[in-house]
């Protein structure tokens, strides 16, 4: 409880500021309407008006929550209006990108740890690859995969998500595979272990805590990549596409609801990965 209290008060503070900002930012429109209808607007009327506009500049939290609830529950989950459906599309893209990123990250890390020449030549480029704004490449990847005859956006989305999510895995795995110290490596050598045995019995188990620690960062990055892949490219499905549609059709509530839906998705993904991490760690005997 002592730990929850500060968090709760910060969240309450944010909500309070949000409500104040709602009144302040929506007031010009409310005054405008009142002036057009030739009535004067008292303070109470102003506040209640700013809380319930159809197209607010900044929707108040309860309006966003209502829209979010409506998007989640008001229709069948397979409907195109359902945020569950769009969330699932984004989730699927995230998982593909996440899986691809893990395979890529672990594979590169294995090569880097095994071959010194790979370490020297790949590592600097891996770092540079993350300083390149991936979104610059997003429309490009879409155009290219269209030309190559790949239907739909699943592949380009997964590529973008993988591009963002492989890096944390790579860095942690390189660290993890190098975690066994010289003494342990020497011991395996005196036992006459082959290289494969050293890898599977020593290096790989030793790297697992590093691997799982990187997954949380990686899954969040994959989600950002998927949403970026949906945003600027005229996609019609997915949370990113909902944000775009909301902004294009002047329906801020849709954008806000999609934004919070993606926040919920991010939270769920991080909790899920955290649970897997805890299970794996306790099975492998890592003390928490």
């Amino acid at each position: 409880m002592t730990r929850a209290l500060p968090v709760l008060s910060v969240i309450l503070g944010i909500l309070a500021i949000w409500y104040l900002a709602t009144v302040w930012m929506n007031a010009p429109w409310a005054y405008d309407q009142a002036a057009r209808e030739g009535r004067s607007l008292g303070f109470g009327a102003l506040v209640s008006d700013t809380m319930a506009q159809a197209r607010p500049v900044l929707p108040p939290p309860h309006q966003v929550a209502a829209k979010l609830w409506e998007g989640l529950t008001a229709q069948a989950v397979t409907s195109k209006k359902s945020l569950v459906y769009h969330g699932y599309v984004t989730f699927r893209g995230t998982m593909w990108g996440f899986a691809l990123g893990i395979v890529l990250g672990v594979g590169l890390a294995m090569a880097i740890v095994r071959f010194r020449v790979m370490d020297l030549s790949l590592m600097p480029w891996a770092i540079i690859s993350q300083t390149v704004p991936i979104v610059a490449i997003a429309p490009m990847i879409l155009a290219m995969s269209n030309k190559l005859g790949i239907e739909g956006r699943e592949v380009p989305k997964a590529v973008i998500a993988a591009y963002l999510s492989f890096f944390p895995v790579l860095v942690s795995m390189v660290k993890g595979l190098r975690a066994p110290d010289q003494m342990q490596l020497d011991l395996l050598k005196t036992w006459g272990a082959t290289e494969a045995q050293t890898f599977f019995r020593l290096r790989l188990p030793a790297s697992m805590p590093y691997f799982f620690a990187s997954l949380k960062v990686s899954v969040a990055a994959a989600l950002v990549g998927t949403i970026v892949g949906e945003l600027p490219t005229g996609a019609v499905e997915g949370l990113g596409a909902r944000m775009l549609i909301g902004s294009q059709f002047g329906e801020p509530l849709i954008t806000w609801a999609a934004l919070f839906a993606s926040a919920i998705l991010a939270g769920l993904l991080i909790v899920a990965v955290g649970t897997v991490e805890r299970l794996a760690n306790s099975r492998m005997g890592v003390r928490a």
Partner: peptide, 14 residues
């Protein structure tokens, strides 16, 4: 850890 990038359309209208 959130996809803050989604704020972009809102901030552009503001």
């Amino acid at each position: 850890a959130l996809p803050i990038i989604g704020l972009a359309p809102i901030l552009v209208t503001w």
